[in-house]
Design a binder for these strands. Structure first.
Lengths: 245, 245
DNA sequence: CGAAGAATTGAAAGCCATCAACCGCCGTGG
DNA sequence: CCACGGCGGTTGATGGCTTTCAATTCTTCG
């Protein structure tokens, strides 16, 4: 990647993200940079795409923090994933016309909207990109599976540790985490909805993790004093993220 | 679909399945029928693909009953999905080189093995098929999400009802379920591993479901006396399966 | 008929949810 | 400048769904 492209990459977290999961040719990268998109800012707690929608564009997270969630008939919410800059949480809408869940902003987020037709056209002309995008949705599915395993078979303590590990890896891949910590603009209530736990229990387990010296979490900033130990506590194996390094 | 093709379709459950989730051209169908494949029979409780493998072929279920699962470091097993004739549980291996979980046979199953290179070649020449296959993996991901919601936010009673509903819909789509029931060659232990429940609790909840008159389950055969009621009990909405009808 | 696996039952314990209250921070407005 | 209001975080008590352990019955099949 030459200097000019590097500069553009910093403007486009999508390239950072794709670079972390696959090898892209320069033509493919340029094609991405040439994609038409309109940028829109979403306030915290607002919906970007709603359950039942038939989107005609995909949303690329440029900054902020978003999540995939669904509201059940009894009002409970299950968050199924957190999406950070570089992610396209509704890439699937390219091939699944009706949304079966919602995408929402947890913090103020700027979102690039890319028309389906533009994406389809680019993917058709760049088979390599098509493969990478497919791969991205497959990694998304792998994260669902990891999440499922956590909810199904791990204790609350392990689950939270695992989630914090996953975010560390993913945020670092797009340059948004340091070696041992990151900003986590997520409430304990939202963590609970993500992990299938009550807010109260999340609070208590976080205190346990703090007590063990595994995390320092204050004011939306997470510090991980001992990365190895946290991985062990969360039974975390990053293989499922399918990152290149 | 003309008569000749219909006949071949009965030989290839994959066509039935794809027909249920997308519109295929006759050329696309023929391309699928022309795929080279070798058939292999797997005994119950044997692995078809293993965690850590780097498959060079995809496995298409022709008959039997298989599942996707992962063993945790403490020995617990989480089953992440059941796969039935017409499904290609490791289609993802086309773009994710290393398996992050295993595929196993729950009942004796005949599996068609299709070389990656053949699939890649066909998908390249048939963009429509490429889209359908991508769509298939996206529906797989949607099932993970539905599963996750169940484990995270639904009671054991709802979860089991929901799973039985899902299988009814999917089996019917490939002609393996009647209007109100199907063969379910799955032990209560396996149901538990799928739903994040203990065997004992699965047993008790099944008795509850029987007591409510929602299911009749004996000797691996499930009968659903009141389909509507079971859907309500499981809070089941088939939208996530993205079936055409 | 015997053995192995699957289903079932009972009792006890534990993790986590629920309910309810209180604290602390921070932005707003008088 | 300080009171107010709201949200997020924290704490305590209680209860229930589910697990675990253990033992028994039922099924299937060689």
């Amino acid at each position: 990647m030459n200097l000019a492209m590097h500069k553009q990459a910093s403007l486009n977290p999508l390239l950072w993200k794709l670079d972390a999961i696959a090898d892209l040719s320069d033509q493919d990268k340029q094609a991405i940079l040439d994609l038409p998109m309109s940028v829109k800012v979403f306030e915290a707690d607002s919906d970007i795409v709603r359950d039942g929608d038939r989107p005609s564009e995909c949303c690329l997270v440029l900054s902020g923090f978003t999540c995939r969630y669904k509201i059940l008939s009894d009002g409970k919410r299950q968050i199924m994933g957190f999406y950070i800059p570089g992610d396209i949480p509704d890439l699937q809408s390219l091939h699944l016309k009706v949304m079966d869940h919602s995408i929402g902003a947890l913090a103020t987020s700027s979102i690039a909207l890319i028309p389906h037709e533009s994406l389809h056209a680019v993917l058709e002309r760049h088979p390599g990109l098509d493969a990478v995008m497919w791969r991205d949705t497959l990694i998304d599915a792998a994260m669902f599976r990891a999440w499922m395993i956590g909810i199904g078979r791990r204790s609350a303590y392990q689950r939270i540790a695992h989630l914090l590990c996953e975010l560390q890896m993913r945020l670092k891949a797009v340059g948004l985490a340091g070696e041992n910590g990151y900003d986590l603009p997520v409430t304990q209530n939202e963590l609970g909805d993500a992990l299938g736990l009550s807010t109260v229990h999340v609070n208590r387990v976080l205190q346990d993790l703090r007590g063990e010296g595994l995390i320092v979490l204050r004011g939306g900033t997470l510090h991980i004093p001992d990365w190895e130990a946290l991985q062990v506590a969360g039974d975390f194996d990053p293989a499922y993220l399918h990152l290149k390094r």
